[in-house]
């Protein structure tokens, strides 16, 4: 009886996660120290969904047989993981020392002002979200902003409207 219940839970969890992730978890279970792969599993889940939803973390917990509290604890410890859906376009501003010295702070102020959201939030239309990167290691190009995959070098506050415009930003609409 108990086994049946567990199986049901496992089936449910398997249905929630994409198949490659399920297979990866099963592969890890065969390795030495299977629990040590928790962080890579979370990476894969986030890669697929864009963020870590509670149900997905619960599913990881069931499949890896690690308490949900622990899964959440590990996920929330690391900056790389986020728990809310991100915008269609992810704007990431580097706040490393070189970028800071070259005025990234002003770019960030303007960016938050333009989009009307703070770091870590997503705009109401779901188009943009702002993240702050610690250092992307392209210090000579400072200040650096990354939209999705594209890197913008030497960004100045007054270039933002134009850059964001490439991704469908409308300054008039956003002001409201």
């Amino acid at each position: 009886m108990k086994n049946e219940l567990l199986q049901k839970e496992i089936d449910k969890a398997m249905a929630l996660l994409p198949e490659p992730v399920v297979r990866y978890i099963q592969d890890c279970a065969k390795k030495k120290n299977p629990n040590s792969h928790l962080i890579s599993v979370l990476h894969k889940v986030q890669e697929h969904f864009g963020f870590l939803a509670r149900e997905h973390m619960d599913a990881v917990s069931v499949l890896m047989q690690i308490p949900a509290a622990k899964v959440t604890g590990v996920a929330s410890f690391y900056h790389f993981f986020n728990f809310t859906p991100r915008g269609k376009h992810r704007v990431s501003l580097c706040m490393g020392t070189a970028c800071f010295v070259k005025g990234a702070g002003k770019v960030l102020d303007k960016l938050q002002d333009l989009l009307g959201i703070k770091v870590g939030e997503t705009s109401a239309d779901g188009l943009f979200s702002i993240d702050v990167a610690r250092c992307v290691g392209a210090c000579a190009l400072a200040p650096v902003m990354i939209v999705d995959e594209k890197v913008y070098a030497g960004v100045k506050p007054d270039q933002l409207v134009k850059i964001l415009g490439e991704y469908g930003f409308n300054p008039k609409k956003a002001k409201k």
């Binding site: 629990n35 928790l38 990476h43 604890g73 590990v74 410890f77 690391y78 900056h79 790389f80 610690r134």
Partner: peptide, 22 residues
């Protein structure tokens, strides 16, 4: 893979992280 925690550059923290912990 690390996951964006500066403290993991400290060796005992790094070890915990490889083990899949905070």
């Amino acid at each position: 893979l690390g996951a964006g925690a500066f403290v993991c550059g400290e060796e005992t923290a790094l070890i915990r992280s490889i083990e899949g912990e905070r």
